[in-house]
Amino acid sequence: MRFIPEENITALLLRLSENATVWAPQVVRDTVNTVLFAPWREGAEIETGLYSALPVKGLVLPATERLFSFRYHRAGEREKIEIEVDELRERAAVFAARACDAKALVTLDALFLDGSGRSYNDQHYRARRGALTVITLACTSCDSACFCSSFEDGAAATAGSDLIFYPVSGGFLAEAVSATGRELAALDLFQESNLEKPPLAETAKVELARLGQRLLDKFDDIDFWRRTAEGCLSCGYCSYACPACHCFNIFDEMESDRAGGRYRCWDACMFYAYTLESSGHNPRPEAAHRYRNRLAHKFSYFPLNRGEFLCTGCGRCIRGCPAGRDVRDVIKALGAG
């Protein structure tokens, strides 16, 4: 396997910076423990111990994306609308992503880049995803919110990554997953090594057997959901922090009398306005209805339709919940598989 000594990491990031913005987890200045993926510059300290508040999905599905600009103009007697699609011109590389984040990119790919025609193929997503290189740092330790081991290969997941780094004494073993990864691992900054891969983190396990059905069985028991959701503040953090959540809304914003832009912005099913109909009726009026939907989408509808959970066990929704809710408690409360 290839090996990169620790002292070569800066050189690697500089090499990547030549034609891409390199995003690495860093503690935000003046905050207590806020870690975010931010553009890396030489000398910046990379934080790999604490978990980032947001996943890397923002690099392929940003919180706000300007889809196109529009402008009205008069052509003879008629008003016409001229549209200009905003093109992505920048490449991006992410360093020290986690396996759970990278894996979720594959879930998003199936939704936004479906070549089979079942779903749609989004040009903005395609441009960002095609311009993204993912270097994952495999987890050898975890915290109590992690539960990736509940899902198939857990911390050993390789999907979505181009190159995976395994921390070993003096540096990192590098396992190439894609062609881009192989190209990188062939750089002179790497050398051959016969070191063994380190043991990876074993995270908490929750019982997922028959979960989709267990959820549907409880679906109509609204009192159960009221009890489950009663501490929930109904904010959107868990959705926005989830590497697999991908709901969005589309807005047209006028920027002058005659011109504006169309934006795609993250939306969260925990918001009242998410399902509010123009008549004023809301099919999910209470936090309980919304909470039920959020979980049922992740653990029931999505797996039934697509054969995989809409969750990778990254634990962000647990770590960052302002009300201290834990999704695993709900899974437990749904009864044994």
Partner: peptide
């Protein structure tokens, strides 16, 4: 620039009573 508009500030505020609307 790092606000994601999750509105946790609003939802956690005891005096932000309008919330849904």
């Amino acid at each position: 620039s790092r606000c994601i508009r999750c509105y946790a500030c609003r939802e956690a505020c005891p005096l932000c009573v309008c919330r849904d609307v």
